[in-house]
């Protein structure tokens, strides 16, 4: 059973007013979202925003405190065991067996997902190939580098060829090249028709997604394609200010009520219009003894969008 949205697109995940509290703490505060079949849906937000709690509720690992929804057409409140048959889940913390070899882990999950005997070997080889682990098949999982482990975990989660996969921070702690490879894999699966629901706190990964939801303190603060989000929420200009003392410059600008954020060794300053603020920033910083090496207008990144949205809320 596949639901359709108003435009006739089939829906893989849909929730309304999903809520989860832990005692007094509201981890997920009545969020609603829908994910179309075959798309890569990015769930972005800082640590502790409620990303993992949401994904766990969708996978049937955590009971929602309130709200309704379906995953793969099954009710998240009543049919969590049926949901588990059609999804693949990769948890935030690496959770395969360290003291099993690569192949033993794959065999184990193949058995647990009840992959039919005749398809088992084929699926195993496919996973080893996909994850680039053919050489390491007899290596103890414990000995693998983080990037390899990540790909193995993905492989084990999709052995049974699920319709929807949920990936909770799949790239945290992985080097940039492995991250890029990983996103290529995810892209490939999406092209093949698999729905991918992925959380991340790396804003630069957002551009890999077809659609995004930004979550902050349990609430969704924005939703749309990466392009939409930039256009809709970034009507103002972003200036990259290159200075010698970043923290001091940040404090000075904040003191003067100019919206700034630290990005590595530079500052991103969001302003209403470029011309007037160029002057102002230079003078304000010069007064407090910070040397300005350069000010440049840059296209807003999603991180700028996110910072702006959080300032607003």
């Amino acid at each position: 059973m596949i639901d359709n949205d108003m435009n006739g697109n089939s829906i893989a995940v849909q929730v309304n007013d999903l809520r989860r509290t832990f005692g007094d703490f509201v981890a997920v505060d009545n969020i609603s979202l829908s994910v179309r079949r075959g798309e890569i849906f990015g769930f972005l937000g800082p640590n502790g925003a409620g990303k993992s709690t949401t994904i766990r509720m969708l996978c049937g690992l955590l009971m929602p405190t309130g709200g309704t929804g379906t995953v793969g057409g099954f009710d998240i409140n009543k049919e969590s065991e049926l949901i588990k048959k059609v999804i693949g889940y990769m948890s935030q913390k690496f959770s395969l067996y360290d003291n099993l070899t690569v192949e033993e882990n794959i065999n184990f999950f193949g058995g647990v997902y009840n992959v039919p005997k005749e398809k088992k070997i084929e699926r195993k080889e496919w996973v080893l190939n996909m994850a680039g682990l053919k050489e390491e098949r007899h290596a103890l999982t414990r000995t693998l580098p983080a990037g390899f482990k990540q790909r193995l975990a993905l492989g084990c989660a999709i052995l049974h060829d699920p319709h929807i996969i949920f990936l909770d921070e799949p790239t945290s702690g992985v080097d940039p090249i492995s991250r890029r490879n990983f996103w290529n894999l995810i892209n490939g699966m999406s092209q093949a028709g698999t729905t991918v629901f992925v959380t991340t706190h790396y804003m630069d990964e957002a551009d890999y997604c077809d659609r995004l939801a930004l979550i902050y303190r349990g609430k969704i603060v924005a939703e749309g394609t990466p392009t939409d989000l930039r256009r809709k929420h970034m009507t103002r200009d972003v200036l990259e200010v290159n200075v010698d003392k970043v923290v001091e410059a940040f404090n000075t600008l904040t003191f003067h009520k100019i919206e700034a954020a630290i990005f590595g060794s530079t500052l991103h300053v969001v302003v209403d219009d470029e011309e007037t603020f160029r002057e102002r920033i230079s003078s304000v910083l010069a007064e407090s003894g910070v040397a300005v090496k350069g000010i440049e207008k840059i296209p807003p990144s999603l991180e700028d969008v996110f910072v702006t949205l959080i300032e607003v809320s």
């Binding site: 049937g60 690992l61 588990k84 048959k85 959770s95 997902y113 989660a157």
Partner: peptide, 13 residues
């Protein structure tokens, strides 16, 4: 303790 249970209970076992 090791977090492997989270993966295991996400399967239809």
């Amino acid at each position: 303790d090791r977090g492997t249970m989270e993966q295991l209970i996400s399967t239809p076992i």
